[in-house]
Amino acid sequence: MEKKSYHHVDCQYYPLYVVVNMAIFVSVTRDAISIQKLLAEVADDSHGALDFFIGAVRNVHEGKDVKGITYDGHEMLINKTLDDICREAERMWPDTHYAVCHYLGDLPVGGISIAIAVSSAHRAESFDACRYIIEAVKKRVPVWKQEHYTDGSSDWLPGHSLRKRAAPCCGHCGGSNHG
């Protein structure tokens, strides 16, 4: 039987929001993402494969020298959307476990913005499901990036419209290549 609960943990050392069920853990945080915690969430003695994706801030974007990124987001909808995406993946790759944490706030170059852990009995499912999660995150999760450049300027990056009738993306990415 599925156990699901929503918590609002307004504490400096814990994620702002957490959605938990037996196989899925998603969260939003304004503190450094804990890789160890995500690993622990997907650990299962029957799973011999664990795939991990970590997104980090690059120092250059389209020829501009980047010094950092501000991540803005709708916290409740981030959690709901992450949970929806993980459930979709779980249906496609049964007996997989998921732990996803997205950062909000300011990050310097090298800072970790997202971490995704997927475990499964064998490696193929973990690789495929982890790729599915990050691609869906980029197109569906309500997060926005404001890049800050070394020349002192800043830009909000284009993204993928959530409107069904709208053009499929920003026109820059070919549908799947946003940084």
Partner: peptide, 23 residues
């Protein structure tokens, strides 16, 4: 996320979400 045809019947708070770029 609300469809354009949905009716808002009373005072409330909503958000407008521009194109997203999570990750």
């Amino acid at each position: 996320i609300l469809n354009d045809g949905e009716k808002i019947l009373s005072s409330c708070g909503l958000s407008i979400l521009p194109p997203v770029c999570g990750g």
